[in-house]
Design a binder for these strands. Sequence first.
DNA 1: CATTTTGAACCGTCAGAGTC
DNA 2: GACTCTGACGGTTCAAAATG
Length: 322
Amino acid sequence: ALQLGPRKKPRSTDPLVHHGRHFGRAIHALCNIHALINNGIIRMGERSEEPEDAFTPQELREHSIFLALLKSVPGLEERLMSSESEDEIHALAAYLQKGASSARSDDTKSLKSAIVDCLTPPGEPLIPPIARNVKTGRGFHHEITGGLLCPAGVDWADKEIKEKLATGELTVAGDQWPIFLYASYQYDESDPWKGLLHSSLVIKAFKHIFTSPSSVDKEAKATRSGNARIHGMTRVTPASIAYSATQARFALSSSSVFNRSDTVTDSERFYNSILELLDEPEEAVEVDSLLSWWNQQIFPNYAANSRPVTANSALAKIKAKR
DNA sequence: CATTTTGAACCGTCAGAGTC
DNA sequence: GACTCTGACGGTTCAAAATG
């Protein structure tokens, strides 16, 4: 019989890819998910009898990420438990990794041009102009992007410093935080928390990624739902803030390839250094107020007196929508 | 109800870096 | 030099909502 053209194969991708996207954006962006899962399973299994202090702080941190992964991906725990071979588990991890990676590259791609709008004053001209789809000329080669990327405490106005940053004679490590993280792009040496992670640029990057690109400067004229809604996200997470800042930082830079183990951009260290601060127990008070400020900015309708959203209440909302 | 707008997800291709 | 792996990039598909 005749085959009338290529049948649209349904071949829907595994839902794990979809959840992997959210995991990367909001829970942990730069990690080897296969290792995360393997180590997590071992700790849940054969090492479960060991006392807490048998684990390094590193391992404990990894384990809490693993638990967050299980919690955020419905059905994952069951699928892992019913896996019978190493290969099967590897395949599940690969789906998640694929989601996280493609979400990240989609975000870098879309922020690459969108960031230009954030830098352009509403008035009109950006001088000198920045190309929307090309990165050369950004970073320390440009007055504006260079000024934003310049580490807090380093004087961008100093001609010599400017020169050395441009040539690469002076390099900036990931844990030297750029001035664009601070509100009004001002750093107060006597109060390092002042304005930290309160900048409009990071907020804009966050909105672009999580709410929707159009919600950045307009009142969300939402048509299609954004990432936060799709994944039932109603509160910001420390990782989602770090992720937005990392994406913004990369968009400002002149590097064209996002590579977490590249020492020039040093994105992984930057990301982790922010996460580390936000996880620091001694900073809990400051971090709490930072998070509630963010929630107020991003999710005003959920802020304050709303109960934490449980899986059940989220489900109820979804059902009510239908 | 048809059209338009919006944005997430996806696809095929390509180039750079590393490996054998 | 052939091969592989990763991510960028342009373009496309699909669904939801607004608009006509």
